[in-house]
Design a binder for these strands. Structure first.
Length: 921
RNA sequence: AGGCGCGUAGCUCAGUGGUAGAGCACUACCUUGACAUGGUAGUGGUCGGUGGUUCAAUCCCGCCCGCGCCUACCA
């Protein structure tokens, strides 16, 4: 083995081997365990969020697989309608073309080409992250089977009246020329103005003043509303208003919607361009006057000289014109919430169109109950509140999109505009008795991408067919996803799953993880220039390449210098090739529930070092066992105390890791293994094993230590494998034969189980004694500035039988590891020389000071120790002197405190004696 | 406006009703035959503030301060 762990050379080949050998496929035996991969955008690339999420899922899947479950990790990608179409359209624009130049069929061909070309990027990158998903079952939301599911669901919902077509206001993206759902609109506060406009009253001299943030919509006003109880305007209700600039007359109406306290208490009502106004309009039978084209330009409903103008230009002109007519009361600066499309960032326009909707409430009801009843559990639990909040106030879902890339809506129209829905055109005709000579035209629209995503848990398993996979793996075990798509995806999967799988939930648990942010807690984004690419953490990147990557293709090129500066500052040496395992371990250790993670590259480095530590431990083990007699298949061995101790400790860590994994606490699992490997196995056990391997001549003892080194390492590798698959496989391949284990891969080995028989409390206590002894010596060395290599004579005073017994079994250990020259046992009568002291229980470990130790330094050391114990003792005694405590606290707690007090008193006594002794020198 | 969450060492974060922990960073010493991507020892915290419950609160409850997110919004 190489001296230094080199991830690149290790990781190369394993994934291919695993995949080629079919290790990722469900075994067909054991309890079914299934995770659905949240399908990434087929034309996308891997980002930190994926890497984080996939680390969690892969750790769970590998863990469950090793435990003997029938595990399926369902792979696949999403067609991501709008996002993908935009990418291809952008490519066309580069050639000076639009999709309309190509026509629908040619354009869709082009998108498929692009999907083929780039679609493998994401799946290749997924493989780099070690994700053990079943590629043989890979699905795409627009492949044949899934498209069939989509049609089936649409038709069935339509038959039940749960999908309908309606004309109403939608969120319209004037750049994309499509409707989008509420969820695809993000509102944010922006600076704007509030214009107050005078609306003359017909037949009177006065006017009403209305305030608006969107003066251009006045062209579509149908009324002015006041509050019914507003005394100021009561007399005007029913009168008419001369709507400026249009020549139209509109009524004054009374409606509770108006807040009399706000502004003048008069509101212009524009039912075709505002969601609230539409409601008011409905109540008062007001006409909806649409004044916009699909580009949000003024249409022919408006006075001629505004026609064709963009909405923002029209706004300017209208304000000017009002000013010219003396109808502009005033203009104030005003902050308002501006809705923008999440893809285009264009201001979304409430727009009157015909769209398809899913009636949400009947579907939401059982979906709410599924969570209330505990059939679906959120982890962490508090996310159910978010879910309920959304589901209980759910609005009908607009599912039609006026784009080309997606599942075309299975509805046909005749020339009278009648609608016929069917799985095919033929079925649509048949069901509705439409004869063959009537010409039908299919709806041009496609479905919202999330419509097909909502079916993912059962469509990928073969629904509507009753496949064995569906039978076996539905309901799936856990869904791992970010809170940002609870509404987009999780809620809709639950609704659709309950609906089409006979009330069965799509998954039993939903593990919600946080967002991956940069090391300062900021959201990673191209425009901020703080994006990390998981592949760069794995493979490394030179500074210059990193800078280049971050500053090219910026929407705001003026940010480039700032980004370059911070990049050079944060990564002066670029990024080292830390490897997949180190990256995964980092994500695992940060995977605490319910919290975003601030990703610090320093952590990755630390865990790369951990990999190196493990690597070198393995190197030590192998170099001392390969070609040696390990007695692996014989009982003719003697286990040392240290052997029995580490085996016992292995049981604890196994329990701890399993408990953590079972509770989705991958962070705790990774910490437990980290500590075991570094702090127990490497720091203590390997060091203790050296005293055997380098000194013992007893073959049985040697065999015992050799086989313990091997066996514990082998088990530890298995414990760790779900988190860091590559390094564990690489080492395991060398270690397993020595451990007498057959198998082609660590992946399919049984996961370690707690074994009561291996628990050895006596050995644990013995090694604790050794540790205390050695730490005491090291402290004296460290604080007295005694060189680590200098052999020390040591005296033991007040030693008990047990101490002496432990000394005998561990004499070599303490001598070698403590670099002791000699150990002398003092009897009660012996006069101890002036010494530095360490305390092991009731025993004093003395290092004579002659020529070694500085008096003042030792006094300082002792006094520091004394202060510490004084404080602790005072605390404990305070408790014990409080009758409330001794009376009311549980006996066990009181006894514990008493024991502590005794211990402190003893230690204090020893230390005080020492202080007196040394002071008198 | 409503909801959720966070505030623990310089930084990033665990944690527990009963002596505050880790990684990184920092200080000193050490190239000892797995590993300097290392070893040994050490520095560092009134656990945001304030009341309450309790024998005992960093942990449970109330209020306050600061920060973040989500949902819905008054033209």
């Amino acid at each position: 083995m190489e001296k230094v762990f080199n991830p690149t050379s290790i990781e190369k080949s394993w994934y291919q081997k695993w995949e080629d050998n079919g290790y990722f496929q469900a075994s067909g035996t054991g309890t079914p365990y299934c995770i659905m991969l949240p399908p990434p955008n087929v034309t996308g690339t891997l980002h930190m969020g994926h890497a984080f999420q996939h680390t969690i899922m892969d750790s769970l899947i590998r863990y469950k697989r090793m435990q003997g479950n029938n595990t399926l990790w369902q792979a696949g990608t999403d067609h991501a309608g709008i996002a993908t179409q935009m990418v291809v359209e952008r490519q066309l624009i580069a050639d000076g073309k639009t999709r309309h130049d190509l026509g629908r069929d040619a354009f869709i061909d082009k998108v498929w080409d692009w999907k083929e070309e780039s679609g493998n990027t994401i799946t290749k990158q997924l493989r780099c992250s070690g994700a053990s998903m079943d590629w043989t079952r890979e699905r795409f939301t627009m492949d044949e089977g899934l498209s069939k599911s989509v049609t089936e669901v649409f038709v069935r919902l339509h038959e039940e009246g749960l999908i309908y077509r309606g004309k109403r206001l939608v969120n319209w993206d004037p750049v994309l020329h499509t409707a989008v759902s509420d969820l695809e609109v993000n509102s944010a506060e922006e600076d704007g103005h509030m214009w107050s406009i005078r609306y003359p009253i017909v037949g009177e001299d006065g006017y009403l003043i209305v305030a608006t943030t969107r003066p251009e919509t006045m062209l579509g006003d149908s009324a002015v509303a006041v509050h019914p109880d507003d005394e100021r305007y009561k007399h005007l209700v029913g009168k008419m208003i001369q709507l400026p600039l249009t020549g139209r007359e509109i009524p004054v109406i009374a409606d509770d919607y108006v807040d009399p306290e706000f502004g003048t208490g008069c509101v212009k009502i524009t039912p075709a361009h505002d969601f609230n106004d539409a409601e008011v309009g409905k109540r008062h039978n007001l006409p909806q006057i649409n004044i916009f084209t699909i580009d949000a330009r003024i249409n022919d409903e408006a006075p001629e000289h505004y026609r064709g103008m963009g909405r923002f230009d029209a706004r300017k002109m209208i304000v000017e014109d009002l000013k010219g007519e003396g109808l502009l009361e005033d203009i104030k600066d005003h902050k308002l919430m501006v809705p923008r499309g999440d893809r285009t960032h264009a201001v979304i326009e409430p727009f009157l169109t015909d769209q398809w909707y899913v009636k949400a409430e009947p579907l939401a009801k059982p979906a709410i109950e599924a969570v209330e009843s505990g059939k679906i559990k959120f982890v962490p639990g508090n996310w159910d509140k978010t879910y309920y909040e959304w589901m209980r106030n759910i609005e009908d879902w607009c599912i039609s999109r006026q784009i080309w890339w997606g599942h075309r809506i299975p509805a046909w129209y005749d020339d009278q505009g009648n609608i016929y829905v069917g799985r095919t055109e033929a079925e649509a005709r048949e069901k509705n008795n439409v004869s063959a000579d009537v010409e039908l035209k299919q709806d041009d629209d496609v479905l919202d991408t999330w419509f097909s995503s909502a079916l993912w848990p059962f469509s990928t398993l073969g629904w509507p067919e009753k496949t064995p996979e569906l039978e076996t793996f539905y309901p799936t075990s856990v869904l791992v996803t970010g809170f940002d798509i609870i509404f987009f995806w999780v809620a809709r999967m639950i609704m659709m799953g309950m609906k089409f799988m006979d009330g069965e939930v799509p998954f039993k648990e939903v593990y919600i993880h946080g967002l991956v942010r940069d090391n300062e807690g900021h959201k990673m984004s191209k425009s901020k220039g703080n994006v990390l690419d998981p592949l760069d953490l794995i493979n490394g990147i030179e500074l210059e390449d990193l800078v280049k990557k971050r500053v090219t293709g910026l929407m705001q090129p003026q940010m480039a210098p700032k980004i370059e500066f911070s990049t050079r500052k944060n990564f002066p040496d670029g990024i080292a090739a830390y490897g997949t395992d180190a990256m995964r371990f980092t994500f695992a250790s940060l995977a605490t529930t319910g919290r975003d993670i601030a990703f610090d590259v320093g952590r990755v480095e630390g865990y790369r070092n951990f990999c190196n530590k493990l690597w070198n431990a393995a190197r030590y083990v192998l170099s001392n066992t390969e070609g040696e007699d390990t007695g692996i298949n014989s009982d003719d061995v003697i286990l040392s105390t240290a052997d029995r101790w580490i085996i016992s400790k292995l049981q604890s860590v196994t329990t701890e890791v399993q408990a953590a994994m079972d509770n989705y606490r991958i962070d705790l699992a990774s910490h437990a293994i980290y500590e075991f490997i570094w702090d127990e196995y490497c720091d203590w056990y390997i060091e203790l094993s050296k005293t055997v391997l380098y000194n013992s001549e007893d073959e049985k003892v040697l065999r015992g230590t050799r086989q313990t080194l091997i066996k514990v390492l082998e088990e530890t590798l298995k414990l760790l494998h779900p988190i860091t698959p590559f390094i564990t496989e690489e080492i395991w391949q060398r270690v397993a034969p020595l451990a007498g284990i057959e198998g082609d891969t660590i992946m399919l080995q049984p996961y370690p189980e707690f074994n009561q028989e291996s628990v050895d409390k006596e050995a644990e206590a013995d090694i604790e004694w050794v540790k205390t002894f050695l730490i005491g010596i090291r402290r004296i060395r460290g604080e007295m500035n005694i060189s680590p290599g200098k052999p020390l004579p040591v005296l033991l005073a007040d030693s008990s039988e047990l101490d002496l017994q432990r000394l005998e079994t561990n004499r070599v250990n303490v001598t070698k590891l403590g670099k002791l020259e000699s150990i002398t046992i003092l009897s009660a009568d012996d006069q101890a020389p002036e010494s530095a002291t360490a305390i092991v229980g009731n025993m004093k470990v003395l290092v004579p000071m002659a020529g070694l130790i500085d008096k003042d330094a030792e006094l300082a050391r002792l006094n520091k120790e004394k202060d510490k114990i004084d404080k602790e003792l005072a605390k404990v005694q305070g408790k014990l002197n409080n009758p409330n405590f001794t009376d009311r606290a549980p006996e066990a707690v009181v006894n514990k405190e008493k024991a502590k007090a005794e211990e402190f008193v003893t230690s204090l006594k020893i230390i005080e004696e020492q202080i007196t002794k040394i002071e008198s020198l």
